[in-house]
Write a protein that binds this DNA or RNA. Structure first.
Lengths: 158, 158
DNA sequence: GGGTAAGTGAGAATGATTTGCATTTGCATA
DNA sequence: TATGCAAATGCAAATCATTCTCACTTACCC
């Protein structure tokens, strides 16, 4: 990557409305309360969440939502290439919404923060010795600025 | 990636002996038949294999090997950063040995072929807006040359 | 060769994820 | 606005990869 300047994309509130529509479309033609709730929760979050967490949040908006529906939604969003799944340091599995459809992220293993990287560092196009690339994933794992600051404090304190 | 020339690394038979030692060391101080079998199977394979497949192959070399031991080995190798885990197109989960410790691969979703990319396209070093990178993963998903050729034949035939 | 800690196999347990099915809901049409 | 139908849902049971338990075996150091 040499000295190329790369930024983490800021959380983009403006695009939320349009992206909500995209996500709902990925779930199917019907717009139901549980689907809207799940999609809104995932879009509002800037970090990976467990299915249980998603369920809890979604129930605030649509109380009858069930865990099965959360999984069904994740399955469809995943089929549409819009879901990032990762195992966090705690061992829990987190899911996050991937608005760009490009899978280049910085993932904090401490808090699950999921930040897209822009511009994309890698292109899909080139053939690798006859290998036909259909998609790619670039992930940087580590500790986000906030978690790093917290652990620094702990280090001083303890 | 612009027009940078990148190659898939050829399967490196010469390094197998040394790498076997590295892998066994990652499993612990004792050199047992099941461990040697599992490591040899993983190193000999150029593609992702399911735990069941690994067990089957390992039993050819060490008949008493059990699935639990395969998982135990995978766990330790993973802790050493030497395991690549991916879900294939079939839905099966495949594990492969990652000799370089660098996780830059081309993965064929059809047959599970796992080829390291050299040289690495990405460095761990740079800070992403305060994000401390500890590791990264770059994966190109697609269809390897052989599977592509096969599906072309099918296309002509059918 | 003997002692001991580590490694192992078998099977049970676990827990995330998926599925079946009766019921409910959204949406198009009358 | 009322109605019909297909899609969506909740619940609970089923599935299945993975992990754990424990009695037994093995590798390794002395």
């Amino acid at each position: 990557m040499s000295a190329r300047v790369v930024d983490l994309a800021p959380h983009d509130a403006e695009g939320l409305g349009a992206e909500t529509a995209v996500a709902l479309a990925a779930l199917g033609p019907a717009s139901t309360a549980p689907r809207r709730a799940i999609v809104e929760v995932m879009l509002a979050a800037s970090r990976l969440q467990t299915p249980e967490e998603l369920l809890h949040e979604a129930r605030i908006r649509a109380p009858a939502t069930s865990l099965a529906t959360v999984y069904r939604a994740l399955e469809r969003l995943d089929a549409a290439g819009r879901v990032k799944r990762a195992t966090l340091a705690s061992g829990a599995v987190g899911y996050g919404y991937c608005a760009t459809g490009h899978h280049e992220h910085a993932i904090c293993l401490r808090c699950g923060q999921l930040q897209p990287i822009r511009p994309c560092l890698v292109a899909d196009g080139p053939a690798l010795g006859g290998f036909r690339v259909t998609s790619h994933v670039l992930e940087f794992y580590g500790v986000c600025a906030r978690c790093a600051a917290e652990s620094d404090e702990e280090g001083v304190a303890g």
